[in-house]
Design a protein around this nucleic acid. Structure first.
Lengths: 212, 212
DNA sequence: CCCGAGGGTGAGGCTGTTCTAACCCGTTGT
DNA sequence: ACAACGGGTTAGAACAGCCTCACCCTCGGG
């Protein structure tokens, strides 16, 4: 039976989700209203099959990438208000299994959770996967090279170290990093490393895991 | 309540589909085992919300495009044996709403039908919608210009007429047509026009859309 | 025989993306 | 002050995709 972890949502949405999931005899809600800071650790504890994330409270879209890297077996379902095709595409490219609109009917959300728990992708009607008319392929998505730089950034490497590892100039690394930050909507490498590692994450309030 | 039309499948699959759909109180099967030749006309008669197509009996992938153009309101769900990411992408770009593997569990197929009936896209786990590593975007998909040529080809225009209408050379039209045929896996414009029009299709052999 | 159609190949121009790199500036920490 | 970082901008080279057109061939029908 698929187990579900739900991140923090708006109150009404959270109540609706709890109700929907608990009413389904084939779904088990193992954690609800988990704050985004604690989602990573809680996934480690509960090992849910499906994780429901709130697109609105994602500090950065890259958090999905971090969670997916930390817990590749957990199926990530992102609930957004009215996700664009590009947003859905980015979510999927960052490891999400499904991306739904909060306007989706309840039974459909439950259905999507079931499908996602078995790895199938579910997308809103607006988001096709490329095709005749759409040309939104790579606008906000990381390029392969950027993904390589991201790996090293997450590992805590300096720009100079990354340049040496990839045999490119430091200016190029800085350009890649800038583009990564912009695409991920974050401000610095601290926003990456804070999310990447799961060991030093402490759930209670304001502890900064890495400051020295 | 969503109504479902099912094309012809292998016997066992067809029996399973009928059983699944008729057991779901929220789905109504209005036609089953419809031969591919008759699907277009039968959609016109029954106006189902969801159409289940058999990827294996698609003479050409372009048939999905034809059905979608003829019946834009019908949600097309394609069942394939083990669809590749490119195949799923092509199905979606041709207007399919979902593309599933026949290995999918029954309840998931029913769930996917429900989601598809409301326009949401469902894809197998193998098929992500673009992203960090995949670059299969446009390999087998029609380009916008090819789609324009396809429209005129379907209307029965000659190469010279198309060239005039699009203000391009006839050699260019021939190139587009060749690429369209290759991408759609067909041999000539006759394969297109035969599928495009629904008037001359005669169904009478299998006139039992509703057995009850 | 000629014309339309289909099939193969190649080529030129255009656009967009990616990768690379350089310049400028300001902030922060030692 | 210096070094590392972040942000902005620009720019060239390489590559892929699309559009356009040209040449070659075969096959059928009037």
């Amino acid at each position: 039976m698929p187990t579900v972890l739900s991140a923090k949502f708006e109150d009404l949405v959270a109540i609706g989700l709890r109700s929907l999931i608990s009413e389904d005899p084939h779904l088990e809600l193992v954690a609800a209203d988990v704050p985004m800071d604690a989602v990573d650790a809680t996934i480690g504890h509960c090992r849910p099959d499906v994780v429901l994330l709130n697109f609105g409270t994602l500090g950065t879209p890259g958090q999905v990438l971090q969670l997916h890297r930390s817990h590749p077996d957990a199926r990530i379902v992102v609930l957004a208000n009215r996700p664009s095709a590009a947003e859905c595409s980015q979510m999927l490219s960052f490891g999400a299994t499904a991306c739904l609109s909060k306007e989706t009917e309840g039974r459909d959300i439950v259905n999507a959770i079931h499908l996602a728990s078995r790895g199938m992708h579910v997308l809103p009607r607006s988001a096709a996967a490329g095709g005749l008319g759409s040309g939104i392929q790579g606008s906000e998505l990381l390029t392969p090279r950027e993904a390589e730089v991201l790996e090293l950034l997450q590992a805590g490497a300096t720009n100079a170290e990354i340049a040496h590892r990839l045999s490119i100039g430091i200016e190029t690394v800085r350009t890649h990093a800038r583009n990564i930050y912009r695409k991920l909507g974050i401000a610095s490498r601290r926003d990456l490393t804070r999310l990447a590692r799961q060991d030093p994450i402490v759930v209670d309030a304001e502890r900064r895991p890495l400051s020295g």
